[in-house]
């Protein structure tokens, strides 16, 4: 085992050719994960709320979309975005953006289920109490249900984010130079150290994800909802 290949290329693994070129490596992995995470948080929230709509005209199509996306492999969604997005927009779209789009759509569908479960987990009496004082439905949702539901959703959100970090490795397939892609580049260039390189990459993913799962477990304990009554 000779890990000098890692030491020699450490900056490249971490940030790619940045600042002299585009961001790559772990930096890009995190960038993809964080941006997709923020977008899919809102995407999931909106889809989740719509999937609980009183109106079937809204509920049915939204659930159809959610279930369709959940039934597709992520790789498929990324391919679709990669080929479809430029066609739809009528211009070239940077690969990293198509990947963010794919990850966002995919993760939003899963987040929407977390949001939905979080909302449905709040006792019906809370909404009844709120509307009994004259609050409108959306006000009850905004001031009473969501603040309580969010606390219950946080651990699941963190878990979803961990999945998202790992899923960014699929960006490799469309040539986005995130961590996995960078690893294959270095591997192809040096030829003789695949074991070392991929052990290192695995360790990086593991450390990253493990720290988040630990964080999630800690949060779960801290936020354990004390039941009223």
């Amino acid at each position: 085992m000779d890990f000098s290949v890692i030491v020699d290329n450490i900056t490249y693994f971490m940030i790619g050719r940045y600042p002299n070129g585009p961001l790559g490596g772990l930096g890009l992995t995190l960038y993809l994960a964080v941006v997709s995470c923020i977008l899919s948080f809102f995407g999931g929230l909106i889809l989740g709320l719509l999937s609980l709509s009183r109106f079937a005209v809204i509920r049915y199509p939204v659930n159809l979309v959610i279930n369709t996306v959940r039934g597709l492999p992520l790789l498929m969604v990324i391919f679709w975005m990669y080929f479809l997005l430029p066609a739809l927009m009528g211009k070239t779209v940077p690969e990293s953006q198509t990947v963010i789009m794919g990850l966002t759509i995919f993760t939003s569908a899963y987040m929407s289920q977390i949001v939905r479960a979080g909302i449905e987990g709040i006792p019906k009496g809370q909404v009844e109490a709120a509307i009994s004082t004259g609050l409108k439905g959306w006000q009850a949702m905004l001031y009473i249900v969501l603040p309580q539901g969010m606390r219950n959703m946080i651990p699941s959100f963190v878990n979803q984010f961990v999945s998202l970090i790992k899923d960014t490795s699929l960006a490799f397939i469309v040539g986005v130079s995130e961590l996995t892609h960078v690893a294959t580049q270095v591997n192809n260039r040096t030829m003789s150290y695949p074991t070392e390189i991929f052990i290192f990459i695995a360790a990086v993913y593991f450390v990253l994800c493990f720290s988040f799962t630990s964080f999630s477990r800690w949060l779960e304990k801290r936020l354990a909802w004390r039941k009223s009554i």
Binding site: G125, E128, A129, S132, T133, G134, I144, Q148, W225
Partner: peptide
């Protein structure tokens, strides 16, 4: 509903 107060068996305070 704003003119009619309602008190529940299970209180339903906002925790």
């Amino acid at each position: 509903r704003a003119e009619v107060g309602f008190v529940f068996q299970q209180f339903n305070l906002y925790p």
